[in-house]
Amino acid sequence: MTTSATLLTLDSDPTKLGDLQARVDALCRDAGLDSLAACEFTTAIIEAVTNSIKHGYLGEPGHPIRVHWRRAHDSIDIEIRDRAQPPPAGFLDHAEMPPPDAESGRGIAMIRAYADSARYARVDDENVLNLTRRL
């Protein structure tokens, strides 16, 4: 059984998302996900961090977001922590994909589709989102 963990810290600056995408995708591939699965789970993580920046911090740079990446023996477990304003209650339940001609509203549905589990909690003034993808 191989386990490993990495902490990725980024600023709430949308221009940092490209670097995060590349890093997370590489970690997922190294952990054993194939190219498509790595891209899918990376998309879920990027959508979650994007939500934190866009809706939590209202697009304002200068706030830390921590992405804890952990490879367990049969899964990749991600924990995303920030101190932004909390999302609306039950936001993860609104997972219906909007119609194809909608210009927005796909983020949560993509998170739910590409992660095997998604859980949110507010802990000590922090938003904590846990995402898991089975290997």
Binding site: T43, D101, E103, R106, M110
Partner: peptide
């Protein structure tokens, strides 16, 4: 283009409209 998120999808839909 190897990676696109929901914002990218919205960009393409907007251009189509």
């Amino acid at each position: 283009t190897g990676f696109m998120d929901s914002s990218g999808c919205g960009t393409l839909v907007g251009s189509l409209q």
